[in-house]
Amino acid sequence: MELKICHMYPDVLNLYGDRGNILCMGRRLAWRGIGCEVTKLPIGSQARLSDYDLVFIGGGQDFEQQVLLEDLHRGKDREIRAAVEDGMPFLTICGGYQMLGAYYETYDGQRCDFIGALDLYTVGSRERMIGNYKFELAPESGGSIVVGFENHSGKTRLGSGLQPLGTVLAGYGNNGEDKTEGARYKNVFGTYSHGPLLPKNPAFCDFILLTALQRKYGAAELAPLDDAAEIAAHNAMAARL
C-alpha cells in the first residue's frame, strides 16, 4: 500500500510547524510498512489533484496570502472544488482552512474571494485568538480529543448545512463564540489547530490516514503503534487546559 500526499503551497503556507504534519504522516505510514510519497506543489506549478490520495494545505502569513490568491484564481480553485466534491481527503489548517471557504472579510470591510469549496466564511476581528486549546472531535471524525495551538484573528462561521470538526473544550475554535471548531465536509478536515496538529494527536492522524487508505483501496487497516511518547505529550497539554 502507498499514499500519495500532495502538499499544496509549501513555499508560502508553512507557518506553524506544518511540516510536522507531513513528517508525522510519513513516519506513521512507514512504521507500518506503508509507502508514502509527498509531492510539493508550490505556487505556479501545474498538477492534477486527482493523481493524489490526500491533500494537505497549511497556514501562512498575510503578506504571502496575496501571492497565493492570484495563483488560486488561475484555475486551481475550480480543481479543488471538484476534488472536494469527489471525496478527496483534505487536511487544511488555519489559513489553508479559511481558504477553502467562500471569502475572507478584513476588519475594515475589504473582501477577498476564496475557493468556495466549503460553506463557511471568515471575518477579521481586532482581537487575536491565541493559545493552546482543546476540542473533542465529532463521532464521524473519530471522536477523540485533540490538543493544539491556535493563532488567528479571523472568526469563521459555518453555513447551516456544514458540520464542525469538533466542539471546543478550552480555547476559541472557529470564532470564540459558538464552541465550534473547524469543519468536516465529505473527506475534508479543516481546523485552526497547528502545534503542529498530528504528532500529539496520533488517533486523529491515523483516522485521516485510514480515511485516505480506505478511499483508495476499498478496505484498509492500520496496525497499532507504540504511542507512549505521543500520548504523554498529548496528556501533558490536555491536563494544562
Binding site: 508553512n14 510547524g17 511540516r19 510536522g20 493559545g131 493552546n132 495551538f149 493563532n151
Partner: peptide, 8 residues
C-alpha cells in the same frame, strides 16, 4: 508560547 517551531 507556541512551540510548533520545533517542527520547522
Amino acid at each position: 508560547k507556541d512551540i510548533s517551531w520545533i517542527w520547522d
